[in-house]
Every structure is written in C-alpha cells, then in structure tokens.
Amino acid sequence: MDIMIKILYAVISVIVATVYGLTLGGVVQKIYARVHGRFGPPVWQPFIDIIKTHGKRVSISHGIMFYLGPVFRFAGGLGTYLFIPVIYGSVVFANFSMAGDLLLVMYFIFFGQLGMALGAGEGGHPYSPLGIARGLSQMSTFELPFSLAVIAVAIQYDSLNITTIVAAQQGSILNWTLFTNPFAVIAAMISLLGMNMHSPFSLVLAPQEIPIGPPVEMNSSFLAILQTNRGLFTAAKLVLFMNLFFGGATNLLIMIVKTFFIYLVSVIVGAAFPRFRPEQSFRFFLKWPTIIGIISIIFIVYF
C-alpha cells in the first residue's frame, strides 16, 4: 500500500514537472522573441504543438530501434527526475530519492542521449548521425567539468545522497554551495550551458546547418514524446542544479523562482552569443571549465 501511494505521488510530481518545464520553454521563447524585437509565440504554444503532433493521422517508422529511441529518451528524462528530491521535506515531491544517489542521476542524464542516438541512427537520414556525433562528443566534454563539480560537492558534504546535500545547505543563504564552494558552482554552471543546448552550444539541434539533427526523421507521436521529454528533462536538470548548488527548495514557489533564474543564465548567454563550431565548443569545455573544476576539488580538499 505504501508503494502505491508513493507511485501516486510520483505521478503527480512528474505531471507538475512536465507542465512546469513546458511552460518554462514557452516563457523562454517569449524572452528570446523580445530580445529579437518580436512578440513571439504565446506561452502555451509548446502544449498546442504537442497536442498537434500527437494528433497526426499517420506516422512512419523505420524499425524497432526507431520506436525505442524516443522511449529511451523519455525514460532518461523520467529516470533523472524520479531520483531527485524536488522539494526538501515534502512527501509528495520527494519522488524515489531514497532509492538512488547522485551517480544514478548522472547516469540517467547520459542514458537518454545514448538511446536517442541508437533510435535516430536507424532513421537512415544522413543528418541524424551528424547530429548524434556532435551531441555525444559535446556531452562527453561537458560531462567532465560537471563530474568534477559533483566530485567536489561529494567530498565537501561527504555524501552522494542528494537529500543529505540539500539538508546540509539549509539554515542560511551562506550555507549554499554557491558560497561554500564557488569554483564547483562556476564549473557546473558552465557545463549547464552545454546541457541546455542554447547558443553558443546549440550544435545538436541546429536547424540552419544540419536540419534539426538527430530527430530529423522523427514524426508524429515519436516527436511528441521527444517534445514532452524536453519539458520534463529541463525541469529535472534545473531541479538537480538547484539541489546541489543553490540550497534546494522548501516549497513549490521557491523551486519555481530558483530554477527560473538558473535557467535564465543559459538564456542570457544564448541570446547574446552566436553558435560555436563543434571543435570550438569541445575545446572550450575541455579548457576553462575543466581547470575550474580541478581547482574546486583542490579548494575543497586543502582549504
């Protein structure tokens, strides 16, 4: 009976996160439009897009992996989200955080991309592998500073349990990792720029260069799953960063405010810079963020 209630809570939590993530996407589109001097699409446009793509009358598949690609991608988003405690001290939004730790969450962040790579590869379109090659290489490079930051955090709090890490940051704003271990936060925030795939790191879904990249053959419901996952996965990543570096949240409002401002970092950078070429992006991640990540570990061990 206990597990049934937990599942019910998890379903509520996932729906809230997806709706929040999609709305956030709509708001961000609006912000970009304002920067360009446009009105931009309505905030609820992502929801209409999903209904429309689900409502297509026919869909074309290219094989079993093509079916499984979006499913793996969605499982990646779902897995990332389900093992993160969203709101500290809340029963409904605790998800299954007790069952796993930070390493499991990091694994799930990688998992979706790999699944998508297999699925999109079977589409057979020449631009899919191009996008996959870019995506996986970029991910390997931005995972490096992020992993270093996570190691620094794990050393600092002597734990890989996210709930413990959030608990250690409660009390005062000065207890946040942002102030106790600033180097780790800088390294992680730079890798978040790559994770969110806004400019200048929007190499994977680059409509002007490689028509939309990996999902180029994805149509109808396949695309709708990917769109839904975009909302959920964005929310999951932002909540993870909020928990690790910005003191977590004790209620839904604080969660929304904090994650919005974390996302705004990506949006400001994205609105200000044009796109990198792939090799520029990879070299960037392997240079400064990695050095800052190493400094963060030295800082936390020796100072």
Partner: peptide, 22 residues
C-alpha cells in the same frame, strides 16, 4: 520569420524537415 512580420505569434513556425511539418 524576422521581427517585422513575426509570424511566430500566430503559432506558425518553420521546420527544416518534411517529416515534422504540416
């Protein structure tokens, strides 16, 4: 698609592949 006529406000967007466009 640019700021003068901004067709995005009507829910219209360009799509680079025939599989996804309507």
């Amino acid at each position: 698609m640019t700021s003068r006529y901004d067709v995005f406000r009507y829910g219209i967007a360009p799509r680079p592949t025939p599989r996804q466009s309507s």
